[in-house]
Computed example of a mutant assay.
Amino acid sequence: MRLYFKYMSILLRSQLEYRASFWMLSLGQFFIPFSIFAGLYFMFSRFGGIPGWSFYETALIFGVIHMSFSLAECLVRGFDGFSTLVVSGDFDRLLVRPRGTVIQVLGSKFEFTRIGRMAQSTVVLVWAILNLPIAWTPLKILTLVMMIAGGALIFAGIFILNATLCFWTVQALEVANIFTDGGREMAQYPLNIYRKPVKIFFTFIIPFACVSYLPMLSLLGRAKGHSLLYSLLPLASLLFLLPCLAAWRFGVRHYRGTGS
């Protein structure tokens, strides 16, 4: 982890060399998600909302998912842009270093300008919390933190799977955006508005429901059965991440190099 934070420190200093550019990009990232949130706001103002869900309840889910996505984009950007390392042959350099490939790819790129997107998500999250009658307890606070962290791990797992495909396809596949950008757009709304196949896929295959909709029922006091089980569901993100890392190790073992 010392090496990881060293990578982070070096890249942060390099990006801050052009401070005006850094802060302008961060400001742009702050305002970009507002167009998405504005769509959510106008949908509720025009149609009266989603059955069974108020605007602030949906806004809380929105804030959680977008903060998770921002964290993943900031900290796992190395895997998202991994195809450039394969195309250029730079991944061969990583293989001869005395450290694991996961930590090196993670440390190859950080997008610190995503703090703007995180700030916007934080504003929405705090605004929703202040307008909801939730009796906050240590367990509920922990659940909210695990929801954000779990969502980031799921997005990280998708980035890792997409990077793994580069060992055979060289270039990253756009189909991964269905599960990153598309997953973000889907998970920012309550899962019960979708049809059963969608619910099953995003609960048991890519468990976005376990970090947004289902634990949110526990926060709002709507859990059917033992609420503690709903609160612990964000841990399912680890069950998704571990096979992704296993797939990555499989890909590394079968990587043939550039031949240069």
Rank of each mutant, 00 (worst) to 15 (best):
W23F: 15
L153D: 02
V105F: 04
D181Q: 14
L94I: 11
E111G: 03
V252N: 00
P197Q: 13
G221P: 05
E17H: 07
F30I: 05
G225Q: 07
R117V: 01
L153C: 10
S88I: 11
V76G: 06
F201I: 08
R222W: 12
Y213A: 02
M67H: 04
T143K: 00
V252H: 04
E111L: 15
S212I: 04
T113N: 15
W23D: 04
P51A: 13
T169R: 12
W248F: 13
L25K: 13
A172V: 06
G257L: 11
R93Y: 14
V76Y: 05
Y230K: 02
W168T: 13
M67W: 11
F62T: 02
L239Y: 03
I141C: 07
V252L: 11
F240V: 00
G48N: 13
G100N: 09
I50Q: 03
G259N: 03
Y194Q: 09
S231K: 00
Q171L: 14
E73S: 11
L27H: 08
M147K: 00
K109L: 15
W53N: 03
L165M: 14
Y230M: 05
R97T: 02
L75T: 01
I154K: 10
G151H: 02
G221V: 07
R256V: 10
S54G: 14
A152N: 03
F82M: 14
L233H: 01
G225E: 08
Q120R: 05
F167N: 09
R184I: 10
L191A: 15
E73Q: 14
L217D: 02
F202K: 02
F55G: 01
A38I: 15
F159S: 09
V198N: 08
A72V: 03
F30G: 05
A128W: 00
V175F: 14
S260Y: 10
N177M: 11
I200E: 10
A119C: 10
F204K: 07
P215S: 04
L233T: 06
R13H: 12
T258Y: 06
V124I: 13
M146E: 00
P243Q: 04
T180D: 12
I61K: 02
G221I: 06
S83D: 15
G150P: 01
V86A: 05
G78N: 11
G49Y: 08
G100T: 06
D181G: 15
F69M: 07
A247C: 04
I206Q: 01
Q120C: 11
F110W: 09
F69P: 00
S218M: 08
F110N: 01
S26L: 09
Y230A: 04
G39E: 10
K224G: 06
F82T: 06
P98D: 05
R195Y: 15
S54F: 07
V175D: 13
G259T: 06
E185L: 15
P190H: 12
V64G: 02
L242M: 07
R195H: 13
S260F: 10
M147A: 02
L144P: 00
A223K: 02
S83F: 14
M8C: 10
G116R: 03
T113E: 13
F159N: 14
T258C: 04
A247D: 00
L27Q: 09
Y41G: 07
V86F: 07
Y4K: 11
L142W: 06
A176D: 12
L12S: 09
L242W: 05
G150K: 00
I141A: 13
F91E: 01
I134E: 08
D181H: 15
Y213D: 03
D181Y: 15
G151V: 04
S237R: 00
F201G: 10
